[in-house]
Nucleic acid binder design. Structure first.
Lengths: 116, 116
DNA sequence: AGAATATATGAAGAGTTGCTCATATGTTGG
DNA sequence: CCAACATATGAGCAACTCTTCATATATTCT
C-alpha cells in the first residue's frame, strides 16, 4: 500500500504531520545534491577559502579537466550558489549564497571530526 | 589535458594545494549524498524532531510506501547515521551521529531562509 | 584579420540511484 | 504450530548523473 494512516499497531508517538513537507524536502535534497559530488564540493570549499578563482586555476589546483570544472560551475551557477565575473579571457567565480557559505563553513568542521 | 600546473596566463591568487583533498571530498560527497534524497531527508528531519520512530509510523507520516522507507533506512543505517532498536515486531530508528544531527539542525534553519 | 588562449556547451555512453514488486525473515498471539 | 503483522532484502527497470570528446564562443595579441 502507498500510505494513509498506519493500518494496525504502531509505535504511538506519532506526529500529526511530517516536520518537513515534500516540496521543502525536494528543495533541500536538490541543494544537498550539489554538494554530493567530489568535484563540486572541492570547488566550493576552495572558493570558501580564496574568495575568488578563475576556471583554469580551479582545474589546475584540483587536478581535474577544465571542461569538467566548467560543467560543475555551470550547475552551481544555475543553482545560484556561485556567481562569476569576467576579466579579459578569464572568468572568476566566487560564492554567491550566504546560507550555502555558512553551510560549507559548518560542515567543513563537522566532517573533519566525523572521520577520525 | 588532465591537469598539471596551469599552462599559461592564469589568475594569480593560486593556492599551492586544494583545501580539501580528493579523498576527503569523496567522503563529504558521500555524506551529502545521503541527504540528497527527499525521502531520506524527511526521515532524518523527522527523527531530529521526535527522537525515535518506528518504520510504519515513518511511512505513514511521510506518505511513502513502507518498503521505500525501509530501503532508505538501510542506507542511513549502513552509513552510521541512524541506529535502530527492536521492540517486539516494531523497530525504532533514531539518529546516531552527533555531527549529522548538528548538520541537520543547522541546515533546517538556513534552508527555510534560502527559499523566501 | 588570424592565431592562440580561456571558457562554455552539447551529445553520447557508462555507471549509479531509487522505485516497485515479490519474497524472505522476525515476532506475537491464538 | 499457524496466521497475521512488521520489517528487510533482492531483482529488474526507468531515470538521472558524471565524464569525455568535439565543438562553439569570447577575448587578446600581433
Amino acid at each position: 500500500m502507498a500510505a494513509g494512516r498506519s493500518a494496525t499497531r504502531t509505535g504511538g508517538r506519532v506526529l500529526e504531520k511530517a516536520p518537513v513537507s515534500l516540496t521543502e524536502a525536494r528543495r533541500l535534497a536538490e541543494l544537498f545534491q550539489l554538494l554530493a559530488d567530489a568535484t563540486r564540493a572541492r570547488i566550493l570549499y576552495t572558493l570558501l577559502e580564496v574568495e575568488e578563482m578563475c576556471v583554469n586555476d580551479l582545474a589546475a589546483i584540483l587536478d581535474v579537466p577544465e571542461t569538467s570544472v566548467s560543467h560543475a560551475l555551470r550547475l552551481l551557477r544555475i543553482a545560484g550558489v556561485v556567481k562569476n565575473r569576467r576579466a579579459g579571457r578569464l572568468v572568476y567565480y566566487s560564492l554567491d549564497d550566504h546560507h550555502v557559505r555558512m553551510l560549507l563553513a559548518t560542515t567543513r568542521e563537522h566532517v573533519s571530526h566525523r572521520f577520525s
